[in-house]
Amino acid sequence: MSVSTTDVAAELKILRKGRGVSANRLVERVGPALHAVCGISAADNAAVIRQKVSDRLGALIEALPDDLRTSLLAAFGLHEQAQHPFYQERVHWAAQTLDRDARTVRRRIDEGIDRLAELAVAGAEPAEAPAPSRSWHTEELRVALALDQPVPEAFEFRRVVVDADEIDELDLALTLTSAGPNSTPLQETDLQVDVFYGGVLTGRRMESSDRIGLALRPPGRLRRGDRHDIALRFRAGLRQPHYVCVPRHPCDLFDLHIRFARPLPAEVVRLDKAFQDDARDHSARGTPIEPDEAGEVHEQFRHLVPGFAYGVRWRPAAGG
């Protein structure tokens, strides 16, 4: 069955009422769209349906930013501390937990339901073509970013592990997010790349309006189980006040140092498993962090999931 995000979102808004997933007559609230995205069959009884819905929603909610995750867990009655019998009581609990007013939390829930529907439908739809086998992953990615230089400069030290029988090229990429719809389109020449060790750059191409793909050929063919180290230097004018890693391949560790220019930013936040668009959206919450006396922050991220953003966003000081 083909389902739309609109159908899933509409059924989720019905599901959040009353006791949420703990409703006595849950079966009557779970429509055909939720049947499809939760893998419910005609043979499933009420207990199995409740378990499948709870497990599926819980797994999808885990992929959302902290504020949306807390809001939605409360909305559906999935949070152990928000088992209240009425939806408005759970909204009130989330508002107190997030230190926001109830109106803001209701907006967060509506926004989260739309995101949840997108994720649910994407996971339910069969792929148009078989996914390519994973050829390599990053064991360590260590980045030192200096923003106090005439042109922002980043050193990247990466150790990759080969998962295929053999490979002779590594596909890398860097995204320079545009400042807005009227900003100058990104050009390949906006990014300077130097290889310090680990191979030779053999190709550069625009993968999207703000993402440059890089192909690096190692000194020799790499075989399954090999570990290979790379050191690169990037120089580019950042088009948005954030630096994030959005991995294409799995990444075990991302270690990020940022040295800010003076005056220091008015606000700095950590982004952990965020949607890529949230990196540029200052209304999307992150975890506040403070630069040290040298104007530096140091953050680590582990077990990065491909497609999500991990890193740091800041708000420049007034007049900065």
Results as ranks from 00 to 15, higher is better:
Cys38Lys: 01
Arg108Pro: 00
Gln51Trp: 06
Asp229Val: 04
Arg205Tyr: 02
Leu174Pro: 00
Tyr87Gly: 02
Ala75Thr: 04
Ala127Cys: 11
Ser133Leu: 15
Asp281Trp: 03
Leu232Lys: 01
Gly199Asp: 06
Asp168Leu: 02
Gly311Asp: 05
Glu296Ala: 15
Phe234Ser: 02
Glu299Ala: 11
His137Asn: 12
Asp252Gly: 00
Asn45Arg: 07
Phe234Cys: 05
Val3Ile: 08
His298Thr: 06
Gln96Thr: 14
Val246Lys: 06
Pro126Val: 10
Ile167Lys: 01
Cys38Pro: 01
Asp255Pro: 06
Ala42Met: 07
Pro306Asp: 07
Asp99Trp: 15
Arg159Met: 10
Ala46His: 10
Arg108Gln: 12
Ile109Val: 13
Leu174Ser: 01
Ser41Ile: 04
Leu214Thr: 04
Gly77Asn: 02
His79Cys: 11
Ala33Met: 14
Pro152Ser: 07
His228Leu: 01
Thr202Tyr: 03
Ala146Cys: 09
Phe234Gly: 03
Ser183Ala: 07
Asp229Cys: 04
Gln83Ala: 08
Phe76Leu: 00
Ala33Leu: 14
Asp171Asn: 13
Ile258Leu: 09
Ala261Ser: 11
Glu156Phe: 12
Asp66Ala: 15
Leu176Ser: 12
Arg159Gln: 12
Ser41His: 04
Phe155Gly: 00
Val312Lys: 03
Glu11Asn: 09
Leu64Cys: 14
Leu60Cys: 11
Arg233Asn: 03
Gly307Arg: 05
Asp252Arg: 04
Leu72Arg: 04
Asp165Glu: 10
Leu78Gly: 04
Arg315Asp: 15
Ala42Arg: 08
Glu293Ala: 15
Leu201Thr: 07
Ile289Asn: 12
Tyr310Val: 06
Asp190Gln: 05
Asp101Phe: 12
Val297Ala: 06
Phe254Pro: 00
Leu191Ala: 07
Ser2Met: 13
Val297Ile: 08
Glu118Met: 04
Ala179His: 11
Leu264Thr: 13
Leu256Ile: 08
Asp229Trp: 01
Arg221Leu: 10
Thr184Phe: 09
Asp101Ser: 11
Ala127Ser: 13
Ala144Glu: 06
Val121Ala: 06
Tyr243Trp: 09
Ala9Val: 10
Ala179Asn: 09
Val312Glu: 03
Ile113Phe: 01
